[in-house]
């Protein structure tokens, strides 16, 4: 296997006394689209900023193209497309000026692609940066980064603040980039339906570390979600295959990992088992981040009040 484009190895970072990353490890392979997910404040932006060398880790290491993040030189950075949360652009420029500036600093800049993409987004070259809406600035940043023909594209929640049409444009721009170049992409996002379509692999960051790091196909194959109503005397299931068990009206909502046919047969023998199917990404996300505390294996007395209705 070729060497990964991105690696995090046990990265830790505190802000004051607050640990944000407690040992983040992941890798992104060439051509792979990796979605980093997590609730607000989970440390996604911190991780991406550490990766690009904008922020020092307190322990562990990260690298891009095999080069330590803190050692990345101008030539290495030229191979990375970066779309930050703040959508930093020079306020004194026009859209056309920003494109010309970017084209001048990146040897492989695809001018024709940029012009086409801007036209599709409805951005005119004469528009002043200061007059753009938040969504338009986000689009311009994405177009500039993608047109730069990077070997790695890193985006911090690129779809934030975009409406549905703009998000679709963003997806199209990403699809074009991937079809043209086979570039690796690492992005954080809150739009799980977009992630389900485009990501090869997802990582879910919770309490400073990854609680899920798997391909979407793997999630579909290995995780099962079902409703289980115990027969009188039937005890709730336990075991390492149980990711989560939430009490619902008269039953349990179970999330199972790598459940064997025997374990499922056991559930059928001790209760009624219905709707066994892989979770959507949103369900999985809620399952693994919806609770605080160290473990995933916990009984959640969710919506217990609902039982009164």
């Amino acid at each position: 296997m070729s060497s990964p484009v991105v690696t995090f190895d046990g990265v830790q970072r505190w802000f004051g006394k607050q640990p944000v990353l407690r040992g983040l490890s992941l890798s992104v392979q060439p051509g792979q689209v990796y979605a980093l997910l997590g609730r607000n404040g989970a440390g996604k932006s911190t991780a991406l900023r550490i990766l690009l060398g904008f922020l020092q880790p307190h322990a562990g290491r990260s690298s891009v193209f095999g080069i330590e993040s803190q050692q990345l030189g101008p030539a290495d950075r030229g191979r990375i497309g970066w779309v930050g949360e703040e959508h930093r652009l020079y306020p004194t420029m026009t859209v056309g000026g920003a494109v010309a500036f970017e084209a001048g600093t990146r040897p492989g800049f695809r001018r024709a692609f940029a012009d086409r993409a801007l036209q599709r987004c409805g951005l005119r070259t004469g528009q002043w940066i200061t007059r753009l809406s938040r969504g338009q600035r986000a689009q311009l940043c994405v177009v500039l980064a993608v047109a730069g023909n990077p070997d790695l594209l890193v985006c911090d929640d690129p779809a934030l603040g975009l409406d549905v049409v703009m998000r679709r444009e963003l997806l199209d721009a990403l699809i074009d980039l991937l079809a043209d170049t086979g570039c690796a992409v690492l992005f954080s996002s809150h739009f799980l339906t977009d992630v389900e379509r485009i990501a090869d692999r997802v990582g879910i960051l919770h309490d400073g570390a990854l609680v899920v790091d798997a391909t979407l196909d793997d999630v579909k194959r290995r995780v099962l979600r079902c409703l289980w109503t115990p027969r009188p005397g039937g005890a709730p299931p336990t075991g390492s295959h149980l990711l989560r068990s939430a009490v619902r009206r008269g039953g349990h909502e179970l999330t199972l990992l790598d459940a064997s046919p025997e374990q499922l047969a056991e559930l059928r023998a001790t209760g009624e088992l219905v709707a066994a199917a892989p979770p959507t990404l949103e369900e999985l996300f809620l399952d693994v981040t919806g609770t605080s505390g160290p473990g995933l294996l916990r009984e959640v007395e969710a919506e217990a009040v609902g039982g009164a209705r």
Binding site: G31, V33, R168, L171, D172, I175, D176, L178, A179, D180, R197, I198, A199, D200
Partner: peptide, 14 residues
């Protein structure tokens, strides 16, 4: 083409 179908379905070309 790979690109056409990826765009049509809004999925990863891979």
């Amino acid at each position: 083409s790979v690109r056409e179908l990826a765009r049509e379905l809004a999925i990863n070309p891979n």
